[in-house]
Design a protein around this nucleic acid. Sequence first.
DNA 1: TCAATTTGTGTAATGAGTACAAAGATATAC
DNA 2: GTATATCTTTGTACTCATTACACAAATTGA
Lengths: 138, 138
Amino acid sequence: MHTSLESHQYLRQHSIKPSVQRTAVMDYLMKNRTHPTVDEIYSALSPSMPTLSKTTVYNTMDIFVEKGAVRALVIDEKNSRYDVDVSAHAHFICKSCGKVFDIFNLKPVLFQLPKDTPFKIDSVEISYSGICDSCKGN
Amino acid sequence: MHTSLESHQYLRQHSIKPSVQRTAVMDYLMKNRTHPTVDEIYSALSPSMPTLSKTTVYNTMDIFVEKGAVRALVIDEKNSRYDVDVSAHAHFICKSCGKVFDIFNLKPVLFQLPKDTPFKIDSVEISYSGICDSCKGN
DNA sequence: TCAATTTGTGTAATGAGTACAAAGATATAC
DNA sequence: GTATATCTTTGTACTCATTACACAAATTGA
């Protein structure tokens, strides 16, 4: 596996020092838009990077989220999942297979933050759930 | 602590056999609209019900959710939280103190399920996050 | 009353995530 | 270039929410 230039640049754009590990993780995220868990990222990279530690993947994801390069999704009760697309869109989780899908093209009003609350709101997460197309037949 | 009649009736309405434990848990949920975790429910009831097992609370919550008497919230990455109000409303989690608050009075359009997707969508969860009023000063 | 079924309990196991300290890599100063 | 400080990575041990499971207790129905 060879990492692309984009991941390297994307990290720099978000003030993240691009180490070998960070670039590999970011590259995986950019090429696999499946909202992977830490375990999935680790398992995918581990064969070609045998010394990679799962702790490193955890640390890396924390930095990515903190720097705004990645969104942490709270939609799967089992694991944290990550999305390198930080633009306004929603997610759908299939209660049968557990996969998480993007939902684009929703009305912009859905992503507006409510103003008349006592809270300082700074983000919104819209999560749908049900059964995905592949699981419908089963 | 004496359980109210409403919790008993509410359980029957949802085809849940009202055992002593289930009634106590439901009563706690109806009187404490704080979106408690299993641990919080257990800790609150345990003193007046010394033989209560945490496993029972887990089982009970599973039944409540399955029967539609309670909504499981996926908003706190640490714990599952539960809301006895199953009507359409959103939630806000304070990233500082971790408390979860209700947000009512949002436009009904927010809770409409998107139609042009390949998925069989049957629920939506709208979660805001930021800093709550009490934590603002700190 | 007795047997069958449902519900509750306690213990042990699982598994995601974190704490921490040591090792390795990178940057900076001289 | 070498020494030093800082940042990053790694492995191990730990925490803690949740689940598995087997047995006990309660309830139901003949």
